[in-house]
């Protein structure tokens, strides 16, 4: 049997399955008569199951059903965010501050005229100038505004939230609860709350951070002691990446279980 015939058979099977599922799902469970809303709902539940299976089919290989679901998803989601953005930001935030007439047209309460909101309006229009080959360069003003502002704001945000606190947290006592060498050995224990463990933890954190930073040195050759420290640094990084990888595995499996629950329960109604 050649490829195109197979394709046709699969297509017919898929369409049939879709129609059967739609028909079965259209019957309300309580035995009432079929209504327009139940038919409509049945169509969408079947469609959801169809696109779910279409996406899963990607695991076998790229195929027309995946392509269909992918392209549909792209179109629908792009428009979705555009509609949400238009109504919430453009109409919700800009219009009520620049025009009573437009506010009325869009049915949003007019707030007050705020001159400063003309700035993004103008910059936005300049951005649209990209579509013109002659005035395209004007769009750079808007880009410059966005890039400049965000560069400045984010530089500070990161420094404030992460960087400085990480630097100061590196200052840890290496001799935790130190009462002398004698006491250290006489009270020695491997318990997680014990003095030895606490000290070991602080030492590993300090040396790990130190070597990790050395690994990130770009302008010095990684040779000798420096090279050794840098190697320890990358080992610590790799061990951490492994741990993080292992940690995520179980979480991902639960996502799959969620999707299978949809197929077997919401669509096929096999679970109860």
């Amino acid at each position: 049997m050649n490829g195109s015939r197979w394709t046709m058979i699969v297509l017919i099977a898929v369409v049939t399955l879709f129609l059967v599922s739609w028909a079965i799902k259209s019957f309300p469970s309580s035995g009432d008569t079929i209504s327009w809303p139940s038919i409509r709902h049945a169509f969408f539940v079947t469609l959801a199951a169809f696109v779910t299976l279409a996406i899963f089919s990607f695991l076998y290989k790229d195929n027309p059903y995946y392509k269909f679901a992918e392209h549909l998803f792209v179109g629908v989601s792009a428009a979705y965010w555009m509609c949400v953005g238009f109504w919430s930001t453009f109409v919700g935030n800009l219009i009520p501050r620049i025009s009573p007439g437009l506010s009325k047209f869009f049915g949003v309460p007019y707030k007050e005229f705020t001159f400063y909101y003309f700035v993004p309006l103008i910059l936005g229009i300049l951005l649209l100038m990209r579509l013109s080959s002659k005035a395209g360069w004007l769009s750079r003003w808007a880009l410059a505004f966005i890039v400049g502002t965000t560069a400045g704001l984010n530089l500070i945000r990161y420094l404030r939230s992460d960087f400085i606190s990480q630097v100061s947290n590196t200052f840890v006592p290496l001799l935790v609860q130190w009462k002398g060498t004698g006491a250290f050995f006489s009270d020695f224990s491997l318990a997680s709350g014990g003095q030895f463990t606490l000290m070991l933890t602080n030492w590993v954190i300090f040396i790990g951070t130190f070597c990790g930073l050395i690994y990130f040195f770009f302008s010095k050759e990684h040779k000798g002691v420096f090279g050794a420290a840098s190697r320890v640094g990358i080992w610590v990084l790799m061990i951490t990446f492994g741990a993080s990888f292992g940690y995520t595995v179980m979480g991902r499996v639960s996502l799959l279980v969620g999707r299978l629950t949809f197929l077997f329960d919401d669509w096929l109604g096999l679970m109860n």
Partner: peptide
């Protein structure tokens, strides 16, 4: 070019590009 602002729709499209 622009694809979409939806995380997984974007991934689906980029995956497609990689395979095609």
């Amino acid at each position: 070019y622009f694809v979409t602002q939806s995380q997984f729709a974007y991934v689906a499209a980029v995956n497609g590009t990689m395979l095609r």
